[in-house]
């Protein structure tokens, strides 16, 4: 097997492995019990997307796609930071919400409504 053939073979195998990783991450996004779980899975999805672009760069030889990978990394980082701020301000663990809803005290409910 010559070196160029090996590079193409490695590209095809990498596509298959990355597709499997993509599938497992999407499974976590669907299953994820809480919002932070889904956000961290989305972050991972961005990393796998950058990996896909890197394999495409080597497989096709169009090195311009590398810029898109760097831009995608920037956007993914900003998206994760924005989601973290969102969780910090609005998100609440589902157990706590259930507790508050089951509590008969009107004060807790009022507090929650004010926040929402």
């Amino acid at each position: 097997m010559s070196s160029a053939d090996f590079l193409i073979f490695a590209g095809i195998v990498s596509f298959a492995i990355l597709s499997l990783a993509f599938f497992l991450t999407i499974l976590r996004i669907i299953l994820g019990p809480t919002l932070p779980d889904r956000v961290i899975a989305l972050d991972m999805l961005v990393y796998i997307g950058i990996g896909y672009i890197a394999v495409v760069v080597i497989y096709t030889g169009y090195f311009l796609y590398l810029d898109i990978a760097i831009a995608l990394g920037l956007v993914g980082f900003l998206a994760t930071v924005a989601f973290a701020r969102f969780i910090l301000h609005r998100g609440r663990a589902s157990e706590q919400i259930k507790q508050m809803e089951s509590e008969p005290e009107p004060e807790a409910k009022k507090k929650r409504k004010r926040k929402l």
Partner: peptide, 22 residues
């Protein structure tokens, strides 16, 4: 050859991260 091996190693790391996530 080195680049192909690095590509395989990187995609396996990504797969392991996804398995850990799950």
């Amino acid at each position: 050859y080195i680049g192909g091996l690095l590509m395989l190693a990187g995609s396996i790391f990504c797969l392991l991260a996804a398995v850990g996530l799950l």
